[in-house]
Amino acid sequence: MRRTYTWLVLLAAFALVVAACGGDDNAEATTTTSTPVTTETFRIAVVAPSAANDLAFTQSMIDSLNVIDGEMDLEIAVTDGMFVVEDAAAAIRDYADKGYDLVIAHGSQYGGSLAEIAPDFPDTSFAWGTAAETFGLPNVYSYQAASDQGGYVMGVLAAALSKTGTLGVVGPVEVGDAKLYVDGFAAGAKAEDPAIDVKIVYTGSFSDVALASETAQAHVTAGADVLTGSAQMVVGAIGVASTEGVAWFGTQANQTQIAPDVVVASQVYHWEGVLREIIAGVQSGTLGGEAYTIDLANGGEVIEYNPGYDLPADVKAKGDAAVAGIIDGSIVVGG
């Protein structure tokens, strides 16, 4: 019996707190929760799996949103760190419920949930990435990065730069964007030098920084003098690259600032173009149905060189040639 009281009192306490706050806060609350939709402000919500400043996947989207925030009247809500897929689904649902104009599900693992949520909100536009399909739904956009293209260019540069003929790749789990990038990297390296040895290790974890670091160390021991890798845990590997003085190629965001002395170049995603098109579409009444891919040709993928790295001109020329070849179609990456 006693515990009944305990819980009742607990509940009552919750209620009290809320009642008290509710009282103080009513006037303010009504203005915040029922923002009139008639204003011109375009409301975007982003749900993303890792931290907004992860120097990788999530940051690429946040940075792009910040760029277009300066161009038009936007209200941006961010829910980052949603690695729990069910929590992300709840967040997506809640933002749609609150009347956001565009809800971005920025994680390929959110797709299954989005396919169930989107039909419940036919007047809300959703965007899902990185992904290639829109489930045939009229209110879902999708976007992806042809990260194998940038990976290919990086592979060409790495093979041209390597003196030992051995390259090391530090991957998380062999899936999605990371797999695409790594496959592209290996293809580019082989194209530049068929004899090159590309050692690819997937550590089995997106978060184990120590293991990523030790993997990079193992690559260096095995003779690798150029390293690359994908996902958040590569910061550990970049640390090893800078200690050992071996070159590093980055992807997803510009990683130069982590190790200014060894990062040669980074493949950076610019989602601004895609976002502008999606926003224009939503404003003109088209809520979805389009699948976008950013690549080297449409400027969504950019190879950003580290100006502080002394890259030989002939190597850079090979990289530029690869970019040009991919853009004009003479080089076809992947299938």
Partner: peptide
């Protein structure tokens, strides 16, 4: 689940919360 499928982000917590 919302998605009626099993999906992993590479960690246990991503599934179990």
């Amino acid at each position: 689940s919302e998605s009626h499928r099993m999906v992993t982000d590479g960690s246990t917590a991503g599934f179990t919360g």
